[in-house]
Design a protein around this nucleic acid. Structure first.
Lengths: 194, 194
DNA sequence: CCAATATACGGAACACTGTTCCGTTTGCCA
DNA sequence: TGGCAAACGGAACAGTGTTCCGTATATTGG
């Protein structure tokens, strides 16, 4: 590469240094705030933690969903990539599916309020919903198809429905009187052919 | 305090006529608004529909949950009472449980936003949560115990968890891409012993 | 190194919630 | 019919998300 950005294919003039710094600070502050108070934490609180104004948040992340996606992108990617791996490594497709769903549940139950946000009908959260679906539905479909082809599970369930059902069951995890993992386990058990 | 209201057991001086009239009007308006816009419909909208001020709503129903409970009380009672009936009429306790859960799901999926509200951690909704639990947990427990005693289902699930799981699965019913009834059916299937 | 300027910032302001409060109205009873 | 407790209406308050624009500053051409 001859110089910093040689190709005219990169129409990105590179952001100002303070902007890049603020974006990183914001991601850290948001991640911390999400852990401490859930993904519904007030925007002003994140801004205060990061030491910036609310306007700065909205310039970097036009909607709250964009901020959430940015914070959790790595983990969602990891979950998506684990799908094929598990399919190759597990004894049966059904077992792989069960283990993959476990990963998904692990992710959700440790993100206070995320499962709830995923089901919100608020338009601001559609990007969030969309990102999760775009990234995870194909993986889920692959596992589901494999298990169905092996005759291990019922075939009348779409990947979107399964993900949504599992997401729903994870709402309110954290309450000691409600074990989301067990509920999902029962759901997955119900998937098996009699 | 010799008289005025002879029995000291009746401390209710009977409300003013306009108050009783307004309460009824309010219940009708709320029921209509819930159907049209879900249980999250703004208070001002209900007030406008009923032709009263918002203050009047809050005098009759101190929290939003009280209003929701008042609107749906009859239906919840009916669902609760159906439990023992089904247990007596069905072939097996497990079948009775499945049919009773069906009733519960029918109720929830026709009440736009109610399942979501039931899981809200907002303190104003605790009364709602509490009412549902008080009324339905004993019924669910009876069905669950009977099925467990018959050896038909796994025994490590509490009535509260089951109700909550089913409630969760009903969130977002109404979306044509998500069949809450089927998800609950799968969950109940997963309850059965292998 | 300095000035010009596009970029980014901060936070006041707006819109929309639920909820409270209190001056005004009204049904009820003596 | 007069008085008053009960009930009413809606303005006001508090807490959200989101937008907007005057101000500050990083960058860059001279």
């Amino acid at each position: 590469m001859a110089d910093i950005d040689s190709g005219s294919t990169s129409p990105r003039p590179r952001k100002r240094a303070d902007a890049r710094r603020n974006e990183a600070t914001l991601l850290d502050a948001a991640a911390a705030a999400f852990v401490a108070s859930g993904v519904d934490v007030p925007v002003r609180e994140i801004a205060a933690t990061a030491g910036v104004g609310v306007g700065t948040i909205y310039r970097h992340f036009p909607t709250r969903a964009d901020l959430i996606v940015a914070v959790y992108r790595h983990q969602v990617e990891a979950c998506a990539e684990a799908g094929p791996t598990l399919l190759a490594a597990s004894g049966t497709p059904y077992a792989a599916l069960a283990r993959w769903i476990d990963l998904f549940v692990d992710f959700l139950v440790t993100k206070h309020g995320l499962a709830q946000a995923l089901q919100s009908d608020n338009v601001a959260f559609q990007a969030l919903h969309g990102y999760f679906l775009d990234r995870l539905v194909p993986v889920c479909a692959q596992l589901l198809d494999a298990a169905a082809a092996a005759g291990e599970i019922r075939t009348d369930l779409s990947p979107v429905e399964l993900l949504r059902g599992v997401g729903n069951l994870c709402i309110g995890a954290g309450d000691p009187r409600y074990d989301a993992r067990r509920m999902v386990e029962i759901l997955i058990a119900g998937l098996g052919v009699r």
